[in-house]
Simulated assay, not measured.
Amino acid sequence: MRNIILLFVSMLTVAVYGQNFQGKATYKTHRNMDIKVSSGDNAPNSDIQKKLHERMKKMFQKTYTLAFNKSVSTYTQNKELEPEVNSGGVQIMMFGNGGGNDVLYKDVLHKEYINKTEISGKRFLIEDTLPETPWEMTSETKKIGNYTCYKATRSREEEQRSFTMTDGEQEESTKTVTITTEAWYTPQIPVSNGPGMYWGLPGLILEIHEGKQTIVCTEIVLNPSEKIEIKKPRKGKKVSQEKFDKIMEEKTEEMMERFKNNRKTKGNGESISIEIRG
């Protein structure tokens, strides 16, 4: 009798997650912020610094939708009211982030992706191979909504560059850091996919912790009555990820140079600008 029950469950799973299987998952992002503002006579007062912290925090609180089937997906930012980013002489510049116009298309079957994004109004299509960083599987579990999730981790080394501006003089430093990622996935939704560039586990990834960033799934709809169309983004200049990274680096340096020149021209009364690379 037990074998018959197991066979029935197996056949039911095949029926539910067959070729026409589709779904949508909503994710919310959050990032802990450490903001350091230079001290001195021209530094923002504590009230302005507090407002700056809150607004930067809100800038990283986004909502995304992952539309998926067994092999492909699109990941897009939901339309939301953008928070104010300029107050009290403190300006925040978002750079390298197309926001609600970005589309990340992943094909986990053929291990490739297309990322449509914008820099300074110019549209790019980044076409490349999905990075494969091995996951370390564990037996640790927890519930996320109605789904039983398993924990997996991985780590990689990454070179990080930082820029600081003191009295109009730019200082740059580079260091190698170890990035650890903690993922929670559910085999109850057997697709090797997840938010952003996360993938490669035997189930949909519902939660990510990486550095100071957290991504959590808040809603899942499986096989909706209205068919989901998952289309490749088409319009934009085609580049590899390596080429796009070089373009981003050049644009960042141009922006820092402009900021440096503005500081020298306007003197100590110039507002403080904080650059955030998306």
Rank of each mutant, 00 (worst) to 15 (best):
M1G: 13
R2K: 14
R2V: 08
I4Y: 15
I5P: 06
I5A: 11
F8V: 03
F8D: 05
V9I: 04
S10A: 08
M11I: 13
M11Y: 15
F21L: 06
F21W: 12
Q22N: 05
G23S: 10
G23Q: 06
Y27Q: 08
H30I: 01
R31Q: 12
R31K: 14
M33P: 01
D34G: 13
K36C: 02
V37G: 13
D41E: 11
A43W: 13
A43V: 07
A43E: 08
N45P: 04
I48Y: 15
L52A: 08
M56A: 05
K57S: 13
T63F: 07
F68S: 02
N69C: 05
K70E: 07
T76E: 05
Q77W: 07
Q77K: 15
Q77N: 13
K79P: 02
P83H: 13
E84G: 12
V85C: 06
S87Q: 15
G88A: 04
G88T: 03
G89F: 10
I92Y: 15
G96C: 03
G98I: 00
G98T: 02
G99C: 07
G99E: 06
D107L: 10
V108M: 07
N115Y: 11
E118R: 12
S120G: 08
G121F: 04
G121R: 07
K122L: 07
L125R: 10
T129D: 12
L130H: 05
M137R: 10
T138Y: 04
T141A: 09
T141P: 04
K142G: 04
K142T: 04
I144N: 01
G145D: 03
C149E: 00
K151C: 02
A152D: 03
A152Y: 04
R154N: 02
E158C: 10
E159H: 07
E159S: 10
R161K: 11
S162R: 09
E169P: 01
Q170A: 08
E171D: 13
E172V: 13
T176H: 08
E182G: 05
W184S: 01
P190K: 09
V191H: 00
N193E: 07
Y198I: 02
L201H: 01
L201F: 01
P202N: 09
P202K: 11
G203F: 00
L204R: 00
E207T: 03
E207M: 10
E210F: 10
G211V: 02
Q213V: 15
N223F: 14
P224M: 12
S225G: 12
S225N: 13
E226K: 15
E229F: 14
I230M: 06
K231T: 09
K231V: 02
P233Q: 09
G236D: 08
G236W: 02
K238L: 12
F244A: 08
F244I: 09
E250Y: 14
M256A: 08
R258S: 14
R263I: 08
K264I: 03
T265Q: 15
I272E: 08
